[in-house]
Design a binder for these strands. Structure first.
Length: 406
DNA sequence: GCGACAG
DNA sequence: ATCTTGTCGC
């Protein structure tokens, strides 16, 4: 790869993007974000667009569209899912990475991390990478810092890969820049010059009768961009609706199209799953839970409250949140108090609970009001119950979960 | 000029 | 991405 070229675009070295330099070093912004106004296409010049197109074309030349010989589908241990949930009406969002591990045919979450992002650019079809990749890079960096032994064999990315006007959607972009195996998973069809709306309509109308059925998405040029795949296991009962939901799967990097399809199918065919592959579905649920909690309190909150919600999601499991909530109920702390005003002596709990949960938590969230704490602690994430085993005492505010070796 | 447009 | 509405199934 042409390193000087990429360096000139600020692409390498993880977090040195020209348009949001410093994002990772600045702390949580004021509620609503610094970019509270709506981002518009007019923020982007044609020259910038051309530069980004050139970057996509350049990266495309390094895309590996065959399977790694050392990683066949049966050898797949862990799968990561990346997704971003937005706060309504602002440019703020929560990006989430969930890593799942295969246990026979079940997929169990073994790692989860959420970060706050403040979008600097508008959504532009064909340039999703601008908005999402900086956040994905932060999540990758934090994973490698706090749980390198849990790095997945493949990342499923919410968006397209090769199925893209320049054959380099965000899934490929992320995979190529970091040398990772990636697969693009889109819920909607993307049409462009070589894959027209007419061809898209044909693909959409093609009946996929059973789970696993698929048709290739072939462009006018003959390129196979990916597959439309029936990933819903719902029975073909009612005519068509949710049961007709399908995904548009395309390779990101270091996969063949057919293996990418099979990996996505394997991640959908799990107990309690949906038509969305499990790691992405869980990442989406977590992002929504965080945004729901934030919505309840952000009007009156300090900026620190946003980070507090991330910490509660990242570092506490279901049981730990409930324990702290019940302690707050028992102590009867007033709405204008902070957690610091709760004396440890007044808590009627086992010493271990105080030492390993309450006191570290108290230290972690010093200047957040109790009503805001309650809203965060009431966050509902039942799927993450058995996710963490590390004591809060050994975790640190602002960090990703510290996953325990097992 | 107008609509379309992964998330 | 987000919203809504209706329908089906557990």
């Amino acid at each position: 790869m042409d390193l000087p070229y990429l360096l000139s675009l600020g692409i390498l070295g993880h977090r040195t993007w020209p348009w949001n330099a410093g994002q990772t070093t600045r702390t949580v912004q004021s509620p609503g974000g610094e970019n509270a106004r709506n981002l518009e296409m007019s923020d982007v010049t044609p020259a910038q667009l051309k530069e980004w197109e050139d970057l996509q074309l350049h990266l495309r030349s390094s895309l590996q569209d065959v399977d790694d010989t050392e990683c066949v589908i049966d050898g797949l241990r862990r799968v990561g899912g990346l997704d971003i949930s937005f706060e309504d009406g602002t440019n703020r969002a929560t990006a989430v990475l969930v890593v799942c591990e295969f246990d026979n045919d079940c997929l169990k979450p073994v790692y989860e991390d959420a970060v706050d992002v403040d979008m600097a650019l508008p959504y532009i079809s064909g340039f999703l990478f601008l908005r999402e990749i900086p956040a994905y890079e932060r999540l990758l960096h934090r994973l490698r810092e706090s749980a390198p032994h849990l790095e997945p064999d493949v990342f499923l990315v919410d968006g397209s890969g090769l199925f893209h006007p320049r054959q380099c959607g965000s899934a490929s972009h992320f995979g190529i820049v970091h040398g990772l195996r990636t697969i693009g998973v889109a819920k909607k069809l993307l049409c462009f010059d070589d894959f027209t709306r007419e061809q898209g309509q044909m693909a959409e109308e093609h009946v996929l009768q059973n789970f696993g059925d698929s048709i290739p998405l072939i462009g006018k040029s003959g390129v196979t961009y990916g597959f439309a795949v029936r990933t819903s296991t719902a029975k073909p009962k009612g005519n068509q609706d949710a049961s007709m939901r399908r995904l548009y799967v395309s390779i990101g990097h270091r996969f063949s199209q057919s293996t990418a399809r099979d990996v996505v199918l394997k991640c959908c065919n799990v107990e309690g799953g949906s038509y969305i592959p499990e790691p992405i579905r869980l990442a989406d649920l977590t992002g929504r839970a965080i945004e729901r909690a934030w919505k309840q309190i952000h009007t009156t909150s300090k900026p620190a409250a946003r980070q507090m919600i991330m910490d509660v999601s990242n570092l506490l499991d279901d049981k730990q949140r409930k324990t702290i909530l019940s302690i707050l109920d028992e102590v009867g702390v007033g709405p204008c108090a902070t957690l610091a005003s709760v004396p440890a002596e007044s808590i009627k709990r086992k010493q271990a609970t105080k030492d390993e949960l309450f006191l570290p938590f108290q230290e972690m969230v010093t200047d957040v009001m109790v009503p805001e704490l309650r809203a965060a602690l009431r966050m509902e994430k039942p799927w993450a119950v058995q996710l963490r085993k590390a004591s809060l005492r050994y975790q640190q505010a602002g960090k990703a979960m510290r996953a325990v070796l097992s």
